[in-house]
Nucleic acid binder design. Sequence first.
DNA 1: TATAATGTTTAATACTTTTTAAATGTTAGC
DNA 2: GCTAACATTTAAAAAGTATTAAACATTATA
Lengths: 194, 194
Amino acid sequence: MYNDKKRNRGDYLVPGRLEEKIIQAKDKVINAMAETMDLYGVTASIGRLYGTLYFQQYPMTLDEMKDELGMSKPSMSLAVRSLLDMKVVQKVWQKGTRKDLYVAEKDFFKFFQVFFSTKWRREIEVNLHAIDEALTELDTLLENPDLSPEKKKEAEAFKQQIENSKVYYNWLDDLVKSLESGRLFELIPPKKVD
Amino acid sequence: MYNDKKRNRGDYLVPGRLEEKIIQAKDKVINAMAETMDLYGVTASIGRLYGTLYFQQYPMTLDEMKDELGMSKPSMSLAVRSLLDMKVVQKVWQKGTRKDLYVAEKDFFKFFQVFFSTKWRREIEVNLHAIDEALTELDTLLENPDLSPEKKKEAEAFKQQIENSKVYYNWLDDLVKSLESGRLFELIPPKKVD
DNA sequence: TATAATGTTTAATACTTTTTAAATGTTAGC
DNA sequence: GCTAACATTTAAAAAGTATTAAACATTATA
């Protein structure tokens, strides 16, 4: 759950420990972010990498990530790729180095936008596809005169239920469009800080 | 992945097979639902139980679930409890039986409402709590005269970044309120079927 | 084109989660 | 308060996932 940086429980605040305090505070927030991402099916270690990149002022290399998180380089390679796939981390280029460099999306609104529209789009796609296939099969079945009245009733109830669920998927599609166009942020506007 | 009901690959549509067709079509849709729920961190078997309950016209007992899904009763007990916790399944009472009976929430809009507001509320709670703790620690630190100028700058940058992220969590809280009050469905209205 | 630096794949291991059988609790009705 | 019918907990096994070291592939540049 935690990386293995040494804690100084009960130590007094002496000059040499001051920087530890920043690291501890940062760790606390990063762990909360990781726990949060875990809610949506992102593993804690990938979440912690995102948090680490989020608070990093400069792009990081795989070697820096592995040192920072105490994990292997292949692990970092896989984790960073998964964050790239989610589009919440970008690869950047920098003169003078051959290493790949990565930065995190620092705007949580954009994070929300890209994260949920991807998930919701997939939900729509997977379910509407299955529904379409099922409807085709049901229609073939309903044309068959050998179908008993009870089974016909059952097939029609099922057909009705999935037809009906399309209303939801169409709404979800509108929500995605609203999120991607930015219109959702007009409907529910973020409040500036005071 | 699949339960072990026998498939009739390549069989012709003969009267005895007709009901199999309904089951197959239903399975297809249920598996899509399970795959979808998996996107949000719900395991496929819990998702499949939800799908099964979703298409069931009557409340189901644990024994019926175990027969339908070919799993053990304790598994069903755990799965159903997790669906109860998510508030997407309800326990119902029926005269004449001592068995517990369960029904699925059949309105996907309500499902969306309860599912995402729970997740988002938890996201807000966990992160704002960590941020508050971090801010307290940072303020103590920033009062300390022994803090080097570089570390002070680092602490202030970090403080600024987490202060700033509160704008997002406040917005998310507004989104939750809008979702729970039903106002989101006025802003982005579902379209009736034609 | 050679080589040194870097990233990725593979295959094995460790870890976590899911599932179950057996044991235990709980409850309703007699 | 017993008993029978159920649900749940526990402990172990099975399955699945994450992590790594080692091998391999790729790339940049001299």
